[in-house]
């Protein structure tokens, strides 16, 4: 079925470059957040795009007794490329749990660090509600501490959208969406994944408000 839904003639190995070329520099492009802001993350505009710091998406939902939070970045990336771990990037998952809705009561910080041997990477989560100290361990591994599950690693790109259709609709002034065409098919992202007991937010006095920021030590690339 999915093959039928994938007529997009963009080879996976060149999808990231094609993505950059398809974007009109500076013009609004309806992606989740991929390649935005263009002057820092879009190869069509920036010769040194900061992929590890380029947020792709944030997801936050609940089911059963847990709240799930996923942040994806460094995508859409070639399926044969490794994950985008970078020691110099700070990821902050901000959560507002009380008024005003524009300030965070919870700040979860995530960083990557190299291990002692080649190709070893670790991840460290700080500030997770109800967790004493940090959650720390190797990437590509499910880490469990104080009832929280955490993981960082390489995954399939989860966003689905006909980017080409949106761009054509905007430029041609006609609706050009094609629901068989997912620009993000066949690509990967790097992701931070957290599953937190819902009761850790029992003291929230407003709906939770999530946002993610990235920043780099030493200035932008």
């Amino acid at each position: 079925m999915r093959g039928f839904l994938r007529p997009m003639p963009v080879a996976g190995s060149t999808a990231a470059i094609a993505a950059a070329l398809l974007f009109v520099p500076g013009a609004p492009n309806l992606a989740a957040d991929h390649l935005d802001p263009p002057t820092r993350t879009d190869l069509a505009v920036d010769p040194t795009p900061d992929m590890p710091a380029d947020i792709a998406d944030i997801f936050a939902w609940y089911a059963g007794d847990t709240v799930r939070v996923i942040v994806t970045f460094g995508g859409p990336n070639d399926p044969n490329r490794p994950a985008s771990f970078d020691r110099d990037v700070l990821y902050r998952i901000m959560i507002s749990t009380a008024a005003p809705a524009d300030t965070p009561e919870v700040v979860i910080r995530a960083r990557f660090g190299r291990g002692k041997n080649p190709n070893e990477w670790g991840v460290r989560f700080e500030g997770v509600p109800g967790v004493t100290g940090a959650i720390e361990g190797p990437v590509e591994t499910t880490l469990v501490k104080d009832g929280v599950k955490a993981r960082a690693g390489l995954f399939d790109e989860p966003f689905f959208f006909d980017l080409q259709g949106f761009r054509e609709s905007r430029s041609m002034g006609r609706i050009r969406f094609d629901n068989r065409r997912n620009f993000f098919d066949g690509n990967n992202d790097t992701a931070l994944v957290l599953e937190i007991p819902k009761d850790r937010f029992a003291n929230a006095t407003t709906p939770l408000g999530f946002w993610i920021t990235t920043s780099r030590i030493g200035g932008q690339l």
Binding site: G12, R68, I70, D78, P79, N80, R81, P82, A83, F85, R87, D88, L90, R92, R109, R111, F112, G113, R114, G115, K116, N117, P118, N119, E120, W121, G122, R124, E136, P138, V139, E140, T141, T142, K149, R151, G153, L154, F155, D156, E157, P158, G186, N187, N188, A191, V193, E195, S215, I217
Partner: peptide
């Protein structure tokens, strides 16, 4: 179930999961 996302596409090289000690930055925000 956790981690909810689908496994990656293609045949990428994964980071090693053998490390036990890592060099994280501790700089302030």
């Amino acid at each position: 179930t956790f981690p909810f996302l689908a496994p990656p596409q293609g045949t990428p090289q994964f980071a090693a999961t053998t490390g036990t000690s890592f060099d994280f930055r501790t700089d302030p925000d």
